[in-house]
Design a protein around this nucleic acid. Structure first.
Lengths: 196, 196
DNA sequence: TTCATTTCTTAACATATGTGAATTTCTGAG
DNA sequence: CTCAGAAATTCACATATGTTAAGAAATGAA
């Protein structure tokens, strides 16, 4: 067994505890349904055209998702250790995703398959609550981001990002930050220069 | 009893059926927890500073929500008959909302209070599933919108809106559409002129 | 360490949206 | 129906971001 890609019992227990209270047996059942996967830097967890059949809990590392539109990568979001991510739309409705999920660093994830989640909903109904809270959290995170988008300039969004998510600044290449902000790398350079 | 503000049994039954299957008794229990409210054009369902303690199902009419930032109304979304809306963030965490929810037409809603929803989660656990699906739907609707935001011009967003949501064009004043698109009314006028 | 490749920066010009002000059109209360 | 207030339009000029191209800096593989 490759220790470096094993599931981290403690971290996963801490995470699920944020959502629901489980007995030891219930937790062990949940834990037993998870798989570990490891991705190299730049490797894709999911590719455009695939059906997303898994949700990912990042144990270590960093990922982004993007959509390829007219040959341009439009970065939607960055996620770091301790976060869940899946393409809900594809995951729930089993339709081909338009997203690519890419590891930006060497990244270890716990994988919860759709089949496993459905087992959980059935065998341990309080996981419906887990699903609800996950979706609610995802919604609120997205809404906060969305509201900032239309109404403030790229420069303001950049300043906000520096302030609110320094990890992104430290660990994500600038071209992807530009893509996330919805501007060109050249424009981000210009903005950075103006702020000096 | 004022017939014009009564709950419409059939519409509400159809709506909940999209999410979960209920026995007649379960539905009646749910239905009994709802209240009807009617709002005049321009009236607010919720005001900035209030705690949002209710979710609204629009039976007829049309609402928008907006945030007031630096004296400017930033419209987040429009909702029509058949949609649910609530400020999740305020509703879930009982904190003061920054949103104002405003009726754009005379609007009749079914009100599901937080207390009622918690009763439902407790008495009819399959409502956890309802909550999950509502949050998932809300998330996906928002994500679709968000992805269009950063990466295309206001003109493209406007054309997309015409195509995908003609109701908005027909029923929402232009100044609010501009605010939703993140531009000034003057800019929307210019865009409309260019498209002629 | 070195070199090829990728990423970042800079600059000049193009384009889209903002701003402020004036005008026209629409709307609803009376 | 009328008219005052609100909403939409138009215009001239200001500003932010895009585009293209070139060069500088950083990075990773050998």
């Amino acid at each position: 067994m490759n220790k470096s890609i094993s599931l981290e019992y403690k971290i996963i227990k801490e995470d699920i505890s944020k959502y629901i209270s489980l007995s030891d047996d219930e937790f062990d059942y949940y834990f037993g349904l998870l798989k570990a996967k490891k991705f190299a830097r730049s490797e894709n967890l999911l590719q455009s055209g695939d059906v997303c059949k898994e949700a990912y809990f990042i144990q270590s590392g960093c990922i982004r998702y993007y959509n390829l539109v007219d040959g341009e990568e439009q970065t939607g979001q960055f996620f770091f250790e301790g976060s869940w991510y899946s393409d809900y739309d594809s995951f729930l409705f089993e339709k081909p995703t338009t997203q690519t999920i890419q590891a930006l660093e060497e990244t270890t994830v716990a994988v919860l398959s759709k089949a496993a989640l459905q087992k959980l909903y059935k065998e341990v109904p309080k996981f419906e609550r887990f699903g609800r809270l996950m979706a609610e959290n995802a919604f609120m995170g997205l809404r906060k981001y969305t509201e900032s988008l239309t109404h403030i300039s790229a420069e303001e969004r950049y300043k906000l990002l520096i302030k609110s998510r320094p990890k992104v600044m430290q660990r994500v290449p600038q071209q992807y930050i530009a893509s996330y902000l919805g501007i060109r790398p050249q424009s981000l350079s210009r903005i950075r220069k103006n702020l000096e």
